[in-house]
């Protein structure tokens, strides 16, 4: 799993960017460890297209040693005549999705992500995980 060195940089902030026809709902969660089933803190779900700015993790508290997870759920409401056209829309999602973290004056860190799309439901789930050290 990827890790991000928080160091003394606080507060740690998250920014999600995406350019897509779909409505994107993003859910950022903080866990004490990667084995936890429930998060101890979260940022309220948001649509990055409507709220594009930086958001503090855990209200600016220290997050060293925590497990951070961001899930984005996309739902397309336009019609797709076929799966190939849908896949082209998903390609744009892959090309433009960015979930980045930063603290202090340190350059933003781009989180790696896994993407799974579902043509039948016109949906897509994107997940990023990071150990904050």
């Amino acid at each position: 799993m990827d890790s991000y060195q928080v160091g003394t940089n606080t507060p740690i902030k998250l920014k999600v960017g995406i350019e897509t026809e779909a409505i994107t709902m993003t859910y950022p969660f903080l866990y004490h460890s990667e084995d936890d089933d429930t998060p101890y803190s979260m940022i309220s779900p948001f649509d990055p297209a409507q709220k594009p700015g930086w958001k503090q993790l855990d209200n600016g508290n220290k997050v060293n040693g925590k497990f951070f997870r961001v899930v984005s759920f996309l739902r397309f409401f336009n019609s797709f005549p076929d799966e190939e056209t849908f896949n082209l829309a998903i390609q744009q999602v892959k090309d433009t999705y960015e979930a980045s973290l930063k603290g202090g004056d340190v350059s933003p860190y781009m989180m790696a992500f896994e993407l799974k799309s579902f043509y039948k439901d016109k949906t897509c789930v994107i997940e990023s995980e990071l150990l904050l050290t």
Binding site: Y27, F29, Y31, E34, D36, D37, T38, P39, M42, P45, F67, R69, V71, F73, E114, L115, K116, F118, D121, T123, V125, E127, E129
Partner: peptide, 17 residues
């Protein structure tokens, strides 16, 4: 549903839809 780290993307999608 989204808060459960053990769910795969397919399971999340099924649970939501």
């Amino acid at each position: 549903i989204f808060a459960k780290p053990g769910l795969s993307p397919s399971e999340i999608n099924t649970a939501i839809t």
